[in-house]
Nucleic acid binder design. Structure first.
Length: 307
DNA sequence: AATTCGCCCTGTCGGC
DNA sequence: TGCCGACAGGGCGAAT
């Protein structure tokens, strides 16, 4: 699923192709993906407008138009494909099996291609999404006030971590630490893949209750999260099922993962068998040896001190 | 108030 | 061979 590194990769690779391009026409084949706006209103808002910039907030892509934004969330299986002028669709779309099923090459426009942006110079942007959990909506210039975006926590790669941890309000939370990592109102952009990877890197068990972790544990975890997110970006994202770059090629991060998608296989660090459990409704892979349940040493009671 | 649960959706896979 | 259920899970709104 596209998380921060995948969305950032898409943003950086798509930006040169769409920036300053005029949207000549939009074809909406599945209006369900539009949120709080009907197809005609959306078309009127974007057709004839040029894309001023393309930015990212959490897992959202923000397309800036002269007077407003349209925003895309790719959900679980959303893809944004850029086809240059005179691009010839490859009807022989190739699927290869590499442990999991992975896609290679740009899909022809098919039943999963739900929205098509035609640019006036002949290029196109295709929004393709098999499970249709993706969303697209309009917002004014003050996009950060939009209900979906207003709740987002800070960008994990931009903040001062010690300061963030100091100001945190969740210290007494009994939630599993993984639930906190997945909570977009705490930090924006981390999903299931990078949550598991960060927990492994920080040697923290995904079920550890937040209020049992020390400040050092949390800092270690957030620094680990940063490392795995940056690594994901450097490798152009994790392609394990549907994610592909705008040119139809895969990210290289899947084979670099330590735990996600590797249940039953050997830990790359210690050789133990990786386990899979359910945490916060999400499949969670971890190493029982490298990630013991952390218990904060309970503050000594008066009785213990007297001894 | 904090947290969990159910739902949306389609393709894939294992079991029979 | 095909049918069926389980699973994949981001985010929202309802339930607890």
């Amino acid at each position: 699923m596209p998380e921060l590194p995948e969305v950032e990769t898409i943003r950086s690779l798509l930006s040169p192709g769409v920036k300053n391009q005029c949207i000549e026409k939009v074809v909406i084949r599945l209006p369900r993906l539009l949120e709080q706006v009907n197809a005609n209103t959306f078309k009127k808002a974007v057709q004839g407008k040029s894309i001023v910039s393309l930015t990212r907030r959490g897992k959202y892509l923000l397309f800036e138009l002269p007077t407003q934004f349209f925003v895309i969330h790719l959900g679980m299986t959303g893809q944004l494909i850029f086809t240059p002028k005179n691009f010839h669709e490859n009807r022989k779309f190739i699927r290869t099996i590499t442990g999991l099923q992975r896609a290679k090459g740009v899909h022809p426009v098919d039943k999963h291609t739900h929205i098509i942006f035609y640019f006036s110079q002949g290029s196109r942007m295709l929004f393709r999404d098999t499970r249709t959990f993706g969303k697209i909506f309009l917002t004014g210039k003050t996009w950060w006030q939009h209900p979906r975006l207003a709740k987002l926590g800070p960008e994990p790669l931009d903040i001062n971590l010690p300061q963030f941890v100091r100001k945190a309000k969740w210290w007494n939370s009994c939630r599993p630490i993984k639930a906190l990592l997945l909570d977009q109102s705490v930090l924006a952009g981390i999903g299931n893949i990078y949550a598991d990877e960060a927990l492994f890197r920080a040697n923290i068990h995904p079920l550890s209750p937040v209020n049992k972790l020390t400040r050092q544990d949390i800092l270690k975890l957030l620094r680990a999260a940063r490392v795995v997110l940056k690594k994901g970006i450097r490798n152009a994202g994790t392609s394990f099922s549907d994610y592909m770059k705008p040119d139809g090629t895969e990210g290289r991060n899947f084979e670099k993962l330590m735990v996600y998608g590797r249940a039953g296989q050997k830990c790359r660090k210690c050789g133990d068998v990786l386990q899979k459990i359910l945490v916060a409704q999400r499949g969670t892979v971890f190493c029982p040896h490298c990630q013991p349940v952390k218990q904060r040493i309970a503050p000594r009671t008066r009785k213990q001190k007297e001894k």
